[in-house]
Amino acid sequence: MEVFEHIGSVASSLIYFALGSRLTLLGARTRSGAEWLIGLTFLSWGAYYALWFLSIGLHSQSALEFEIFITARAIDCLGMACFAFFPLLAFRRGSTWAKWLAASLAICVIAGIPGSSWAGDPKGVSPLTNFWWWLEWLGSVGSGVWIGVEGIHHYGITRARVRLGLCEPIVGHRYLLWGLAGVFWTLLDIIVIGQYVDFWATQTWSSALENLVGLLEIAALAMVWLVYFAPAAYQRKINAPAASA
C-alpha cells in the first residue's frame, strides 16, 4: 500500500489550497509580486494534487482519467513557472543573473510538459526515451535547489543580524524552514528519477519509492506549514533567546 503517498497527496492538496488562498489575498493587499507568485504556485499545486488523486480513482474510465491527468500536468506547469520566479522576487530582486536563471527554469518547465506530449509521452513517464521529460525535470529540480540554497544562505547571514537585534529570530528561522523545504523538494525530484527507472525496468511502480516520495512531500509540507501556521508556543520558543537578551 502506498499509504504515505496517498496521505501526502491529500494533505498536500488541502494545505497548498489553504496557503495559496491566503497568499494570493495577501499579494492583492500588499501588491507584492513575491506573495502573488508563491500563492499562485501553491494554488496550482493544490489543484494538481487534487486532480492527480481524482485520476487515481478513475482507473476504470481511462479516457476521463487521461484528460484529468493532462489537465493536472498543465496546471502544474503554470505553477512551476511561477515557482521558478519566486526566489528572484523574494531574494534576488534586481539581480541580472537571477532574472536569467528564473526565466531559464520557467522555460524548461513550460517547454518540457507540452514537449513531452509532442514526443508521444503526454503523461511524462518515459525519461529514458523522452528528452523533454528531462527539460521539465531540470526546471523543477533547479527551482527546488535554488529555494534550498537561498533559504539556507539567508539563514546563515541572518544569524548575525539576529545577534545584533536587527532581525527577529522567527524571521531567520523561516529562512531555514524554506531552505529545508527546498532540500526536501530537491530530494523528491531526485527520487522520482529512481521511480521512473524502476518502472521502466519492472513495469510496476515501486511501493517503497512511492512511500519515500510521500514522506518527502509530507516533510516539505511540514516545513512550509511551520513558516505560515507556526503555533504560538513554537514561535515563542524560537524568539525566546532574543526576548531574554
Binding site: L23, T30, L89, A90, R93, H154, R161, I170, R174, V227
Partner: peptide
C-alpha cells in the same frame, strides 16, 4: 520598499 527578503518573510506568516 518592503520588498527586501526580511520584510517578505515577516509578512508571509501574517497572511
Amino acid at each position: 520598499d518592503s520588498s527586501n527578503p526580511d520584510d517578505i518573510f515577516r509578512r508571509l506568516a501574517k497572511a
